[in-house]
Amino acid sequence: MDLATAIILTVVTASTPLLLAALGELVVERSGVLNLGVEGMMVMGAACGFAAAFTTGSPSVGILAAMAAGMAMAALFAGLVLGLVANQVACGLALTILGLGLSGLIGQGFVGQKLEPMAKIAIPLLSGIPVLGPVLFRQDPFVYTSFALVGFAAWFLSATRAGLILRAIGDNHASAHALGHDVLMVRFLAVLFGGACAGLAGGYLSLVYTPFWVTGMSAGRGWIALALVVFASWRPGRVLFGAYFFGAMSIGQLHLQALRGVLPDFLVLPGQFWSALPYAATIVVLVAISRARGRGGAAPAMLGTVFAPDR
């Protein structure tokens, strides 16, 4: 395996958790709910996924546990903002803080333990293609899932009736209610889906990316995922692009920092600059895209607003 393939492979692993979490949040936001608790759901997924996989020895159980943890957190959030009509921003922030704390407690007994990295699934024939083969067709199930989810989300939102109802609720929940659509149920399901995706992203971190548990190992990825949804102007395809662009930048900056001795002196900038570069570059690129496409920049009109039907 040459260096280029190796770099691309690390880009894939860096991008997958962002893509998973951002896709889930995208569906949530299209329904009009703003869940700022992605980071909390993700880190809970990482802790519970690792704990379950380590205890049972089965990576599959780990994946399921990660998703279940994300959904449990999401259900808590939904109960507050949908059931009790609480402020979404405050609840989302609280969810992140709770997740970071609770995951530390759950993961306490597992610090220093190590898992076998999950086996990659090679697709026969296709995985033999040079460069592309190992990158695209010899991956772990998470990567395949993340690609499938992009297609699924795009198809679901644009081509299905359920997706149409979800978009309609995000655009005008009072009208949707007046037409007889169950606003709260649709939003509840969307929030659960978002929780499952964030949990899955967390599971990826502790089961594949670095197969051990460290407190706070989500390391801000939940926030990046949130930003990606906005800058991708709520389109699944652009989320895919944004996640991989950010992944590529964050791996690229590591390699650039390693070139320190080779580069001319004036290019030797502090490490912090390179670490910040992916964030800045991703924002610039995605802003440029959403400006160029014009009309696409609109957020779901109901984003973050509460809905309480009178009865």
């Binding site: 149409l164 978009r167 309609a168 655009d171 005008n172 009072a174 009208s175 949707a176 007046a178």
Partner: peptide
Amino acid sequence: VFQHFSLFDSL
């Protein structure tokens, strides 16, 4: 037919 139309602007 509602007074404040029950329409969805972005659809």
